[in-house]
Amino acid sequence: MIEIRFHGRGGQGMVTASQVLATAAIMEGKYAQAFPEFGPERRGAPVKAYLRIADQPIYKREPVITPDVVVVADQSLFLSENPLEGLRPNGVLVVNGAYKAPVKTYYVDATSLALKVLGKAIVNTAMIGAVVKATGIVKLETALEALAKYFSGRIYELNAQLIKIAFDQTKEL
């Protein structure tokens, strides 16, 4: 089982990011579970989302406390909390923008890419591209297919483009 914890702020779309990846995993025939730490999203407030992907049914329903992957959509969260808490020894950080952390780190400039492609600093889809590149938990094509369950029309097209660009530009620090 792979456990992923997303850290973001309300409005950045981390809950949707976890759902799109869960949907992609399910489309690939795996089991998945994605859920938010807070129900009603409050714009700007710290939000966590959890994602589990496994080949077997998932029973555990506690928050992810020992993640294999931590995703941070907003570096300012490092000031108010420790997103790396509980990260497993060989765990990976996927972060928006270069950030020096004492763990294996992948980064992408999600905010500027989102501003360029969407004209808005909504970074969830860029972070999906980064997670897929960094972890390979699902195929890029499946992530794009899963995205179509959440967005349609021009919004889908722009976000699909953003996922692909972010996937290409994600680098190991």
């Binding site: 976890s18 759902q19 869960a22 399910i26 579970q33 994605a34 859920f35 938010p36 998932i58």
Partner: peptide
Amino acid sequence: FLMSHTTEA
């Protein structure tokens, strides 16, 4: 929430 808002297969 723990189920109502959790995405599963």
